[in-house]
Simulated assay, not measured.
Amino acid sequence: MRKASLLFAAAFIFFACEDVIDVDLSTSEPRLVIDALIGFNSRNGDPITVGQVKLTLTAPFFDEEVPPALNASVSIIDEETGEAFELGESEPGVFTIGFPELQFNRDYTLSITYEGEIYTATERLNASPVIDNAVQGDGFLFDEEEETEVIITFTDIPGERNNYLFSFGFDNFLVIEDEFFQDSEITFSYFYEDVEPGDLLPITLFGIDDEFATYAELVLTQSGEDGGGPFATPPATIKGNIVNTTNSDNFPFGYFAISEFDARFITVTE
């Protein structure tokens, strides 16, 4: 797990010291990290299912690279039909090939076999509204020269309480609950930093359930909004919805979510 005491930073106060100081940080056995978000869209022609199941391992705090989990097998099981769809890797530890076409009101189980142990989670497809409008504005929060405003409008799914996850690209995410705009249209601004004219800004809206909203909020709070998103390895022990059915003590990190989505793209102008 990537953890170290903030007190370690005090060691750098003595940067002028010529002696080499070895700091012995305790380490633990690597755990599996499962980042699994599958999106479904049937509004723009043929239905499409996209996403990835990314398998990595926790690593010591000062390691610069996060190692992939190799030689795993991953499948999605349609619990209504019993059919299992085996996924293929597009790169080591990243499975993006072979997703089934999803349907609402069905349970889907993610099943992963890694080093003789089986990890599973079962979820249902969550509905998402469409993005009614997304345009570039001319406002700013703090720095007119560094910020680019995007104004987004969407309408809450009526008749129920909802949670939504916005992805703004560049590992920027926002979780929204409809408490104050239930059954209504909402318009809000999001501010990008350090983007240039001609840059393409992807804006994606996912419908999510209460459990994933809580998990995403916790991870975003701990890692920072641009700290890798709700699927980044959390800096503290935040368990997701995936369990190790073979050895419960060797639990994984990460989350499995399936969501309907809508997307818009904006090209930055002057």
Rank of each mutant, 00 (worst) to 15 (best):
E123C: 00
A84N: 11
E149K: 08
L7C: 02
L57K: 15
E144I: 08
Q222N: 10
D24Y: 13
D22E: 13
Y190M: 00
E65C: 02
E101N: 10
E270F: 11
E193W: 05
N247T: 10
T269Q: 15
G139H: 12
I13H: 11
D19F: 04
G139S: 12
R124G: 07
T120H: 07
T153N: 09
A134I: 10
E217K: 15
I186S: 02
T187H: 08
E79I: 07
F188A: 01
L25G: 01
L6K: 15
E196A: 10
D22W: 04
I21D: 03
T120R: 13
I266E: 05
D19W: 04
V268G: 10
N250H: 15
S223F: 02
P202Q: 07
M1R: 09
F154G: 00
N44M: 03
V33A: 14
L25K: 10
Q103G: 12
F265P: 03
G93H: 05
T155E: 00
L7K: 12
D209I: 00
Y108T: 06
D138I: 07
F173H: 13
P47F: 04
L200A: 12
P68V: 07
F40V: 01
Y164M: 03
E79K: 14
G224D: 03
F253I: 00
G169K: 10
S90R: 15
T120C: 03
I34F: 05
E18A: 13
Q222F: 14
R106N: 15
Q182Y: 08
D178N: 15
E101W: 14
I258K: 02
A257E: 03
G45W: 01
N244A: 07
T81I: 04
Y119N: 06
I151N: 07
F40Q: 04
T187W: 13
K239L: 12
A134Y: 08
E211D: 14
A263M: 12
F85S: 11
E260S: 07
A236C: 14
P202H: 14
G88Q: 11
A36F: 06
I21V: 15
G169H: 13
G207R: 03
A9M: 08
D209K: 06
F140E: 03
M1Y: 05
D156H: 05
I13M: 07
T56W: 02
F231H: 10
D209L: 01
P235Y: 08
L7N: 11
V74H: 12
V195Q: 04
E260V: 00
I77N: 11
I242C: 04
S28A: 12
D194W: 14
N105D: 11
E29A: 09
G207M: 05
I266H: 07
D194Y: 13
G227A: 01
N244T: 05
P230D: 02
F104A: 02
G93Y: 01
N244P: 05
G228S: 04
P68L: 03
L125M: 02
E117S: 11
S259N: 03
F181H: 11
G228V: 00
F168H: 09
Q182V: 02
